[in-house]
């Protein structure tokens, strides 16, 4: 079985995003960029399935600017076998990403596509579900456990009330949640080896996908800021405050 893993280049999760003064977006100039954390978990899961003999090949895919090659090299250094960059400087919405991925699935015929549940920049949480819809395939979203048995996959999902397990027929789409695994760091030798792995560069037009946005961003603004309040000296003072508020 082949596994496709879409990985997005996003602002590093340790960086506090700043809204541009002109209200057109978030300032990404000279900001540290990394692989979306949920996608690292997706890459790790694919590697573990390969190590367990359940998969033969892992293909990492990114839709984004030239620099997204770095993100793909990270996936290759972790253990993906080859990569495809669908290059564009435009911001591509989840629906268009899903359409590009659908076309690649058509060419590659993977048994599984493992995506992150959410990109930490747009916070959409859509692409995996959309891809599953376009392909008419089952979806196991927010996965904390993935088990392949024959031509099915069991996915334990993190849901609001706790955990839920579904059984999907393969081929299927899975999206990762935080507890699925702890991604490995790429070793130096593997980083060197990754430089030689195959990385194809394509364009959205190669897949016949129109990436024109459906949503127009009219403005991006700062959220209401909370200012720091007071510090109390001890527990008695805190109790007094709670009583004042009518909480206790």
């Amino acid at each position: 079985m082949k596994i496709l893993v879409p990985v997005k280049r996003v602002i590093d999760y340790n960086v506090k995003p700043r809204v541009k003064a002109d209200g057109t977006g978030v300032d990404l100039a000279n900001v540290k960029m990394s692989m979306n954390p949920f996608d690292e978990i997706a890459v790790e899961e694919a590697i573990r399935l390969k190590e367990a003999g359940k998969a033969e090949e892992i293909v990492a895919i990114s839709v984004g600017p030239t620099k997204a090659q770095e993100t793909l090299r990270t996936a290759l250094a972790m253990g993906a076998d080859r990569a495809i960059l669908v290059e564009t400087d435009a911001e591509v919405e989840p629906l268009a990403v899903a359409k590009i991925l659908k076309a690649i699935v058509g060419e590659e015929n993977p048994g599984l596509v493992i995506l992150g549940k959410q990109a930490i920049d747009d916070d959409s949480n859509q692409t995996g579900q959309m891809l599953a819809a376009l392909l008419g395939r089952p979806q196991g979203t927010f996965a904390s456990k993935v088990e392949i048995d024959g031509d099915h996959v069991s996915v334990t999902r993190e849901v609001d009330g706790g955990l839920e397990t579904v059984r999907l027929s393969l081929p299927a789409i899975v999206t990762t949640d935080l507890r699925l695994n702890e991604p490995r760091y790429a070793s130096l030798p593997n980083i060197m080896k990754a430089k030689k792995k195959q990385l194809d560069v394509k364009a959205p037009a190669d897949y016949g996908v129109d990436i024109a946005p459906r949503l127009k961003t009219l403005k991006v603004s700062e959220p209401a800021v909370r200012s720091a309040g007071i510090k109390v000296a001890d527990v008695d003072a805190l109790v007094a405050k709670l009583k004042e508020m009518g909480v206790a």
């Binding site: 995003p17 978030v26 930490i120 920049d121 916070d123 949503l215 961003t217 991006v220 603004s221 959220p223």
Partner: peptide, 13 residues
């Protein structure tokens, strides 16, 4: 967006 560090106003077409 961005973990609530920015608020986008969007219009659907």
């Amino acid at each position: 967006i961005y973990a609530g560090n920015a608020i986008a106003t969007v219009e659907s077409s």
